[in-house]
Simulated scan of single mutants.
Amino acid sequence: MKFKTTIAKGAAVAALLFAGAAQAQDNLRLGTEGAFPPFNFIDSSGELAGFDVDIGLALCAEMGRTCDLVAQDWDGIIPGLIANKYDFVIASMFITEERKKQVAFSDPYYLAAMSFVAAKDAGITDFSTEALSGMTFGAQSGTTQADFIQAVYPEADLRLYASQDDANLDMASGRLDLMVGDTIPLSDWTLKTDDGACCEIIGEPITDPEFVGDGVGIAIRQEDTELVEAINTALAAIIENGTYKEINDKYFDINVRTMKAE
């Protein structure tokens, strides 16, 4: 009888361990930056929030998975994914050939362009390499915006920042002649914030595929092919069932999948 009781207890423990392992496998870790409003930011309660976060959580719900949020500085966001700190990254990351060498990407979940920002009285109308040579540019470190400035304006004084907010601060303080960043966040900053009132978006949007890639995608480790497929299936589903539009309309006046008003 004692032997049978031991077996029964062992079976119960095994069942609990199996259930725990299954539950752990159902959990995913979503990595994002938390410093790129309105796409990802820390809200007034200290929680990660924004368009990227809401889309990521909607994808998790569609996949039937529980997701934990992980904040990561931009410079370390791809190394953190490769090091298994989280399972996928949704942080407004352009899909570029260079990044494809390190990670896999989902289908694009929105389109994006980059823009120049300058002080309202700057009077800059010529954006040629020669005209802007020697000017002081600002951009977030490790971004395609920084790559663009280095490639097109090699003689510029480029200052790199840990976050877009840090770059905005120096732009507002008059320490930069120009700044390059994603169009939508910079539009929000210049039109909807007090410190951004100093400045305006100038020139045409920068849409060169060499720098903006094939849109904005979700980064996944290259070996996690099943997760790539699952995320793509879930993305198509939330677009089809209207969840994507609800989230889009919470943050934007345009459809960011097409960059057009509806």
Results as ranks from 00 to 15, higher is better:
residue 57 L to C: 06
residue 58 A to F: 01
residue 60 C to T: 05
residue 64 G to V: 02
residue 65 R to W: 08
residue 68 D to Q: 15
residue 69 L to A: 11
residue 71 A to I: 14
residue 75 D to C: 12
residue 77 I to N: 14
residue 77 I to K: 13
residue 81 L to T: 04
residue 86 Y to N: 05
residue 89 V to R: 11
residue 90 I to L: 02
residue 92 S to F: 10
residue 92 S to N: 12
residue 100 K to I: 02
residue 101 K to V: 06
residue 103 V to Y: 02
residue 105 F to T: 05
residue 105 F to D: 09
residue 107 D to L: 09
residue 109 Y to G: 04
residue 110 Y to T: 15
residue 114 M to R: 13
residue 117 V to C: 01
residue 124 I to P: 08
residue 127 F to C: 00
residue 128 S to W: 04
residue 129 T to P: 09
residue 129 T to D: 12
residue 131 A to W: 06
residue 132 L to K: 01
residue 133 S to C: 11
residue 134 G to E: 00
residue 138 G to P: 03
residue 139 A to E: 00
residue 141 S to Y: 15
residue 144 T to S: 07
residue 145 Q to P: 10
residue 145 Q to L: 13
residue 146 A to K: 05
residue 150 Q to V: 14
residue 151 A to K: 01
residue 153 Y to P: 00
residue 155 E to H: 14
residue 157 D to P: 05
residue 158 L to I: 08
residue 160 L to H: 08
residue 161 Y to T: 10
residue 163 S to N: 08
residue 168 N to M: 10
residue 168 N to E: 12
residue 171 M to D: 05
residue 172 A to V: 06
residue 177 D to H: 10
residue 179 M to T: 03
residue 180 V to R: 01
residue 183 T to S: 15
residue 183 T to V: 08
residue 183 T to W: 10
residue 186 L to S: 11
residue 188 D to C: 14
residue 189 W to C: 03
residue 189 W to Q: 03
residue 189 W to D: 06
residue 192 K to I: 12
residue 194 D to K: 15
residue 194 D to Y: 11
residue 197 A to T: 03
